[in-house]
Design a protein around this nucleic acid. Structure first.
Lengths: 111, 111
DNA sequence: GGTCTTCCCATCGTTTATCGATGGGAGCAT
DNA sequence: ATGCTCCCATCGATAAACGATGGGAAGACC
């Protein structure tokens, strides 16, 4: 879809959020969504149809790697881990994000 | 296009930026782009192929109105003005934007 | 046994924002 | 007359995000 009617996310920030989440340690898809929801105090509610395609993208780019395992609840789960390239990418995306946010704030706070 | 290779903008923020710019007074398309570039210190470089479609959207939604006139340089120009609904929308979008940015920051600054 | 909830995976289709390329035209200076 | 800056606008491509939908397995509760 394009821009959805109900906004749960700032478009263009999902990769960054996922990379940042994984920087805290390996996690599976469902867990990533849960962490994001919890950390953002229920503001960021990533649907699974946004999350899994995003993870595929990150896999293809080589920023994360995945391996099957068992979750804490004894379920089959695919754990994602940040690669070295992913860690570098996280830094770059964060810089770029901060740069844009700063610029936007300059506009929004202008008189 | 989808996401361009070179990012000049956070997707989903252009409408907000335009509305905010027009809150400072009527302006034509080219002028809006110039103001944004100047205020952001050259970070936000809105292409005309992003700008004019966005203005069409805002017109259709009734958030801005337009009228032809002459620019300061004696050129034919279309001046856009914020409507009452547009001013309201600006407030709403800004709140939503701040809400999301706050949530994102909570994630990015987590340990 | 049967049902329900929670956890966990994934894809397909649709919509839409953004941008590159491209088209035009008019004022003004050299 | 050449070129530069201003000013308008559209078309086509691409990719992001999401609703809907599909599945399956663990554990609880009746």
């Amino acid at each position: 879809m394009g821009r959805p009617e109900s906004i749960e996310l700032l478009p263009g920030t999902l990769d960054l959020l996922i990379l940042k989440t994984l920087a805290a340690g390996a996690e599976h898809g469902y867990g990533i969504a849960s962490r994001l929801k919890a950390l953002s105090e229920d503001v960021l509610q990533i649907g699974e149809s946004s999350l899994y395609p995003a993870l595929q993208r990150l896999l293809i780019k080589g920023w994360v790697k995945a391996e099957w395992g068992a979750s804490e609840n004894n379920r089959r789960a695919r754990y994602y881990t940040l690669t070295a390239a992913g860690r570098k990418q996280l830094g770059a995306e964060r810089e770029e994000f901060d740069r844009l946010i700063l610029a936007i704030h300059k506009v929004l706070n202008a008189t």
